[in-house]
Each structure stands twice: as C-alpha cells, then as structure tokens.
C-alpha cells in the first residue's frame, strides 16, 4: 500500500560518511525521505542501518556530508537543542525505558521538562497515548513488571508524547520474544496509517510489505538498492539484495 506522500523532504542526507576507527559504517549515503513517507531499512548486521538512523537524530555524529532534518542542518550545536531533538522520536531495540520511574513518569518526563507542560496536561496526553498503545492499565507499574512487548509499546508512547515530526525505529522487535512481536508491530502499523514520517530498521518483512512506502537495502555502509515494496520483494535488482532476501524470507 502506497500512502500519499508529501513533496516536502523530512530528511535529506547528502554524501554522508561515518567511520568507527577503520570501520566505515556509512559510506557516502544519499537519501531523501519525504514528509509522511514510511521507509523500511534492512540489510545484514554491520551494514550501517542503525548508524544511519542514529546519525539522523544526532546520537552519532557524521563525519562528512550533510544531514538536514525538518529544515534544520544537523550540527553539534543543533543537537543540543532540546526542541529540535524532541521533534525526532526514537524507539530502541532495548526499549531503554527508565527503570526507576513508573510507566506514567517515563511518559511525562519529556513533556514536562523539555516542552514545559504542566503536570495535568502531560498526564492527559500520556493517558491518551497509553490508551492508543493499548496498555492504559499499566501506568503505575515499573518497566520491569511489564513484558517485553508492553515495554516496547510504552517506549513508543514515550516517544509520541513529545509529538515528534519523525519517528525512528531501530530494530524495535529484535529483542522481543516471538509471540510479542505482532503486538508491537500492530502499534507501529497504526502509527504509519496516521501519516507520521517513519524510518524503521527491521527484518520483519511482513511488516515492511504492509507499512512501507519504500524499501532500502544497505550493505557495507552503502545503500545498495531501494524500491517500492512490491518491486523490492518481487524483482530485486542486485545479487546481494536477492541473496539477503532469500535468506530471511525462506523461514
């Protein structure tokens, strides 16, 4: 399914490179993601997928090239800007909830401290989001009392609490038990249908077919292939991508 895609770019990466020591994690990446577009990134481990999304919100700093996100150039200075960062929501593989805070406290921390909301409004927003990720009854629990799937849904709600313009997902289901993957993916698909810009790193190809506007295959720090989901899965152009898809789709 192809959503209507706005013609304004949300993310523009131009000749972006990034190394960790001798290892070239990103090698001359050029990528434009339009407003409202849903992009799924896949590729073997070490191919640079995570680094790609982490450069977009400034968790990693790129060495060469430029990254423009919602009209702002990503620089060391803008990365310090709380409002800029809060416009880019991120969901991590390991959830990264704050274990000493309750679910509700996890959700309202950002809105209260970064956006300066009062507690009443923050609670209201958080309650609505917990409803949306279908765990309103867990708000007073600590993260450790929840299942992995529930924790990840809280993490998604926490990110949404900041009303981001872009959502980044870095392998959101890779740390989950198999039976919990679909509850998280369902929430992400709902989100996709609401039109927010999303970049999702995942190997869940069933999800990709349902939610993606565009598929990106990375290998060795480069974007090797990109296409709409139908052509991507049915007629992969490169051998490398074909082999990869064969490997993950044969199960």
């Amino acid at each position: 399914m192809i959503n209507d895609v706005n013609s304004i770019p949300a993310v523009t990466m131009t000749n972006v490179s990034k190394s960790f020591g001798d290892f070239k994690a990103l090698n001359d990446i050029n990528l434009t993601v339009m407003n409202g577009e849903k992009v799924v990134v896949c590729g073997p481990s070490g191919s640079g997928k995570s680094t790609l999304v982490r450069c977009i919100n400034g968790l990693e700093s790129h060495e060469n090239g430029s990254i423009n996100v919602i009209g702002e150039e990503v620089t060391p200075r803008i990365k310090q800007n709380a409002l800029f960062r809060s416009k880019i929501g991120m969901v991590f593989q390991q959830f990264n909830l704050f274990p000493h805070l309750t679910v509700m406290q996890n959700l309202i921390l950002g809105p209260m401290k970064t956006l300066g909301m009062n507690k009443k409004d923050a609670l209201k927003r958080a309650e609505a989001l917990l409803e949306r990720v279908q765990i309103p009854e867990q708000s007073e629990k600590k993260p450790s009392q929840l299942s992995g799937g529930q924790q990840q849904r809280v993490a998604i709600a926490r990110a949404l609490c900041m009303e981001p313009k872009i959502m980044l997902f870095d392998e959101p289901t890779s740390a989950l038990d198999p039976e919990m993957i679909s509850e998280v993916l369902d929430v992400i698909i709902d989100l996709a249908n609401e039109g927010i810009t999303m970049i999702v790193v995942t190997h869940e190809m069933g999800f990709a077919k349902k939610a993606a506007d565009r598929m990106i295959f990375m290998d060795g720090g480069k974007i090797v292939e990109q296409n709409d989901p139908e052509n991507f899965f049915n007629n992969p152009k490169t051998d490398r991508c074909k082999t990869f898809l064969d490997q993950i789709l044969q199960h």
């Binding site: 919100n57 400034g58 968790l59 709380a82 409002l83 960062r85 809060s86 880019i88 929501g89 991120m90 991590f92 990264n96 909830l97 704050f98 921390l109 950002g110 401290k113 970064t114 956006l115 993490a155 926490r158 990110a159 609490c161 900041m162």
Partner: peptide, 8 residues
C-alpha cells in the same frame, strides 16, 4: 540516549 531523544 533515551533521555536525549526526549530532549533532556
């Protein structure tokens, strides 16, 4: 990192 992404 999580704290940074919610703007703290």
């Amino acid at each position: 990192e999580a704290a940074q992404t919610i703007g703290l």
